[in-house]
């Protein structure tokens, strides 16, 4: 397809009106309100539904909600999640909680914050929280283990009490 080139008028060919309008636009912005946010001092208001870092949550009674079903590990596109299942040995302190992860690592350097883990989780045990600024001084530091994830995730209040009647 050939698009015919528009024939320019004399004034247009002189560039001057264009320069003038360009000047007007830049001058307007020059004096206009600035939008820069002074980041470490000023913080951005995270909108609801924002997908930040995925963390594990506890239930009302402070127990790990995760039951180590490993669906998030399976669904994770960049393979950032790695779960070590508990194995057959029952742990005394978990009480009637039948299963929970022995280890639960999320490599935040690999994580792409897609939210699939939250979507696939049948226990509502993992949530993408609002943390967007994750920093560390080495790679190992950026692999968050179960304790860290639980501490960051906090408690999730919901109506279902899975282990109450078991």
């Amino acid at each position: 397809m050939i698009v015919p080139r528009k024939e320019l008028s004399f004034w247009e060919r002189m560039y001057l009106p264009t320069i003038w309008s360009g000047f007007k636009v830049t001058a307007r912005h020059f004096v206009g309100k600035k939008v820069t946010m002074q980041y470490p001092e000023e913080k951005w208001t995270v909108p609801p539904g924002y997908r930040g870092a995925p963390y594990l949550v506890k239930d009302q009674e402070g127990r790990t909600k995760c039951v180590s079903c490993q669906l998030c590990e399976f669904v994770c596109p960049p393979k950032a999640i790695r779960i070590t299942p508990p194995g057959p040995a029952a742990v005394a302190e978990t009480g009637n909680v039948e299963k929970g992860p022995k280890e639960f690592d999320i490599n935040m350097l690999r994580c792409i914050f897609c939210g699939y883990c939250q979507e696939v989780c049948p226990e509502e045990a993992i949530f993408l929280k609002q943390d967007y600024s994750l920093t560390g001084t080495n790679r190992k530091e950026m692999i968050f283990n179960k304790e860290k994830l639980l501490a960051l995730g906090g408690t999730h209040q919901d109506g279902i009490q899975k282990w109450k009647n078991k």
């Binding site: 180590s68 079903c69 490993q70 590990e73 399976f74 299942p85 508990p86 194995g87 057959p88």
Partner: peptide, 12 residues
Amino acid sequence: SKDFRFQMRVWF
């Protein structure tokens, strides 16, 4: 199986 119980999800 007690031996395989909670060792690994079978789809892996």
